[in-house]
Simulated scan of single mutants.
Amino acid sequence: MNNEQSSHRLTADDVYEEVANTVVTYMVDCGLKDIDVIAGEFFFALDHAYKPLPRFWRDFKLQPVIHAVSTQYPQWFSVALRRDRNAKNVVRIVEKFLKRSAFDEANAEMLMVLPPQDRPATADDALDWICERFIAEGHYSKLRFAQWIGLDCGAQALQVMRGLELAAAGIEYSSPCASFAREIRDQCIAKRRAALSLA
């Protein structure tokens, strides 16, 4: 491994360590307890921690996140009230979320290769272009998945593409999912402050 590769790897490790810390901070800000650490909360926290960088989702390192969450919430592996909320199931669901996010990201980066004037402008057109590309390259499992997702496949690809382009231009970008997650966090913080002021 040359020095450039080593530096890139360290930078990637640093990114995901920061993501892990951001995920835990989000959960703490939302006032979660061990029993509240479920898949939905992970989704919000990951959306909040998202960085619009190339290959962010495809290179995602989940282990630092799980380690950080387990350090902050040491009982979350054993306090599930229902089977679908046990830690192993939560991790499995989060892994599916990451795979879907990586799929959308890969589609967005395919669209970005096109000259701006040739890019699809609607979710419908983006879906058609993505499917045609999968057919041309013989990626039939990806084709079936894109068709199963439907228009959301095209919509998400366009959304991720816009975020990556804005970030590359130095413009701060927050996805709709990230904005919603932050609203939830801000509401939780505001409720706790209001309760303390009344105490």
Score class of each variant (00 low, 15 high):
residue 1 M to F: 07
residue 5 Q to W: 07
residue 9 R to Q: 12
residue 13 D to N: 15
residue 14 D to M: 14
residue 15 V to W: 07
residue 17 E to H: 14
residue 36 D to Q: 11
residue 37 V to Q: 03
residue 41 E to P: 04
residue 47 D to I: 00
residue 49 A to T: 03
residue 53 L to A: 01
residue 56 F to K: 02
residue 59 D to F: 14
residue 62 L to V: 11
residue 62 L to Q: 12
residue 72 Q to K: 15
residue 74 P to N: 11
residue 74 P to C: 08
residue 75 Q to L: 14
residue 75 Q to H: 12
residue 78 S to A: 15
residue 79 V to R: 10
residue 81 L to N: 15
residue 84 D to Y: 07
residue 90 V to W: 00
residue 94 V to Q: 06
residue 95 E to V: 10
residue 97 F to Y: 10
residue 100 R to E: 06
residue 101 S to Y: 05
residue 103 F to K: 00
residue 103 F to V: 01
residue 104 D to T: 05
residue 112 M to A: 04
residue 113 V to R: 06
residue 114 L to E: 01
residue 114 L to R: 02
residue 115 P to L: 08
residue 117 Q to D: 09
residue 118 D to H: 07
residue 118 D to Y: 07
residue 119 R to I: 05
residue 120 P to I: 03
residue 131 C to P: 04
residue 133 R to C: 03
residue 135 I to V: 13
residue 138 G to I: 08
residue 139 H to S: 11
residue 141 S to E: 11
residue 144 R to G: 02
residue 145 F to Q: 14
residue 146 A to K: 00
residue 153 C to P: 00
residue 158 L to S: 04
residue 158 L to V: 06
residue 161 M to V: 04
residue 167 A to V: 00
residue 167 A to L: 02
residue 168 A to I: 09
residue 169 A to P: 01
residue 172 E to A: 06
residue 174 S to Y: 01
residue 175 S to H: 06
residue 180 F to C: 10
residue 181 A to P: 01
residue 185 R to F: 11
residue 186 D to Y: 10
residue 190 A to R: 15
residue 198 L to T: 03
